[in-house]
Design a protein around this nucleic acid. Sequence first.
DNA 1: CGTGAAACTGGAGTCGT
DNA 2: ACGACTCCAGTTTCACG
Lengths: 145, 145
Amino acid sequence: MDAIDSRIIDLLKRNARSAYGDIGAVVGLSASAVKRRVDRLLAEGVIRSFTVQVDPATEGMSTEAWVELFCRGTVSPTELRRILSAVPEVVYAGTVTGSADAIVHMRSRDIPSLELALERVRVAPNVDHTRSAIVLSRLVNRTAG
Amino acid sequence: MDAIDSRIIDLLKRNARSAYGDIGAVVGLSASAVKRRVDRLLAEGVIRSFTVQVDPATEGMSTEAWVELFCRGTVSPTELRRILSAVPEVVYAGTVTGSADAIVHMRSRDIPSLELALERVRVAPNVDHTRSAIVLSRLVNRTAG
DNA sequence: CGTGAAACTGGAGTCGT
DNA sequence: ACGACTCCAGTTTCACG
């Protein structure tokens, strides 16, 4: 993971379909050398996957919410992961410092389906209550480069 | 945007470097038919871009925080966007319902640089105060498929 | 890490429905 | 208008130096 690797990743973030030769021309390597590095970065797990960034709105997932999760007693992160992974609307979740135990980012088609998903989180054992904030407008989204 | 488009997007999410012919073999179309659909989806903005999903930890961005933003008086979403876009550590932001005006997802190398970035957000005009929650452990991350 | 050759893919045009 | 087919330039992928 040297400086050239970083530059290659930077270029791939902007366009994951760039030809290896084009990348090589920028960073000063041959196409095969670039491919070898990309293969290595994939094997090492630095590059998780090649994906497309889709407009959530046109994909029919225009309703978003941030949910703070408050639990009774102590809930292990492992159990929280199990609960939250089961709800497909959960896009991102993490345990946090502060009064809440975890914060959850949810994305769904509309308010009713969001409410349904929220209900599925709430009924989980040891979940005391939740505090939700519906997203009104997205300001910044650099999630994938 | 029909059922086949959805399936194509689904396949591209999993591997954005799939050959059009391979995608066509799965959805029952020829390579050129798939390409035309992908080009159309790109032109329509349904597909925003082809990117790579990089492991934030190995990229040296292991510190994350959620920040609630409280403003004085009324701040337009446009101005908030301008302020937050200027801080590269801001990964995601949106205006929300509830007591906070906006919620911000930040990602940085370490605590000191996170504090610096937070300071840049705080000094913006009309920002009254912020409430931060540092992420202890990531539970779910389905941000990019 | 670079070079070269073989196989494959992408891009554009054309035709049929 | 949309999908299938064909050709050629360009790209990927492998060997080896």
